[in-house]
Simulated assay, not measured.
Amino acid sequence: MQRFSRRTFIAGSVALATGSAGCLSGGDDSTPTPGIGTIAESTTPDTEGALPSPVAGDPEADVTVAAYEDYACPHCATYSLDVFPQLASEYLEPGRIRYEFHDFPSPVDETVSWQAASAARAVQVEAGSQAYFEYSESLFGDQSNLGPDRYASLAEEVDVDGETVRQAATEERYSETVTADKQGGLDSGVSGTPTVFVNGSQVEWQEIAYEPLKDAIESAMGE
């Protein structure tokens, strides 16, 4: 994952750790999960082969934001809990951009990074992208407590059968999808998390904050 202190990158905006390196610091366990609103349709994907990336906002928008994250990465939790809700309110609910979530297990935690990704994909299969994004935020919000029981209980909160999600997680049922997503990130130059692209250009930030992402989006929109 990307090497930065809890709020600031080390050695500027592009300092990256190698694949097996862990985090330098943890997230804030007391951070509540903000509501993200209705940002995506709940149509479920075809389960043949690798699953498509969960998409929010307007699928046909001219501006695409693609985020690569690891559910065990505390800096991804900072992005998802502090930045993403603002993005959802300003750009996704009004349908101004297309937003794609991509799995990129570093892995920070060999078990959680992969199991949580499969748990979230099980929710996507059972209930669609809207439930996926809600569940994803819950995973980041309860990051320090993740495990099979928590995957199940959080699934129940989005009206998905907990045992189905528990089994998907422990079996890493969607590892093909997660692996393909990570490879796509590697092919695009991703080497740490969180990494965010706007129309194919990586957002460079000195800290995880909303303004650099907003500026990149507005620039892509020509505003």
Rank of each mutant, 00 (worst) to 15 (best):
D181C: 01
E176G: 02
V178D: 10
T177C: 09
N199S: 11
N199I: 05
T177G: 06
D187M: 03
Q202L: 02
T193N: 12
A180K: 12
S201N: 14
T179W: 06
V198H: 07
T177H: 06
G184R: 14
A180H: 02
T195A: 11
Q183K: 15
P194E: 09
V203Q: 04
P194N: 10
Y174M: 12
K182E: 13
F197P: 03
G185F: 02
K182M: 14
T177P: 08
V190I: 09
S175I: 12
G192K: 10
T193Q: 13
Q183P: 00
V198A: 09
F197G: 07
F197Y: 14
N199A: 08
P194M: 08
G189F: 03
R173K: 15
D181G: 01
T179E: 15
G200V: 03
R173F: 01
L186A: 12
S201C: 00
Q183D: 15
P194V: 06
V178Q: 09
T179R: 15
V203G: 03
T193Y: 09
V196M: 11
T193D: 13
L186T: 13
S191M: 08
L186F: 03
Q202Y: 00
S175F: 00
Q183L: 14
T195W: 02
G192A: 09
A180Y: 02
G185C: 08
Q202T: 09
T177D: 12
E176L: 10
V190E: 05
D181V: 00
G189A: 04
R173Y: 03
D181E: 15
K182D: 02
A180N: 14
S188V: 00
E176C: 00
L186D: 11
P194D: 06
S175V: 12
K182N: 02
N199H: 06
N199V: 06
A180P: 02
G200S: 05
F197S: 02
D181S: 15
T177K: 07
D181Q: 15
P194L: 06
K182G: 04
S175Q: 15
T193I: 11
P194R: 09
R173W: 01
Y174N: 12
S188D: 14
E176K: 12
S175R: 14
Q183W: 02
V178A: 12
S188K: 15
S191N: 13
S188T: 09
V198K: 12
V190R: 07
K182W: 01
V203A: 08
P194S: 06
V178W: 02
E176Y: 00
A180T: 12
E176V: 06
S191A: 13
T193E: 14
Q183A: 13
V178N: 04
V178M: 08
E176Q: 13
D181F: 01
G185I: 05
T195F: 01
G192H: 03
Y174I: 04
L186W: 00
Q183I: 11
R173I: 03
G184M: 05
T177I: 04
V190K: 07
K182T: 07
S191V: 08
D187R: 10
T193C: 12
V196F: 03
G184H: 06
V198Q: 10
F197M: 08
G200D: 07
V190A: 08
L186N: 12
F197W: 07
Q183H: 10
K182V: 01
L186I: 14
G189P: 06
D181N: 13
G185L: 08
V190S: 11
T195V: 04
Y174G: 02
G189L: 09
G200N: 06
G192I: 05
S175G: 01
S175K: 14
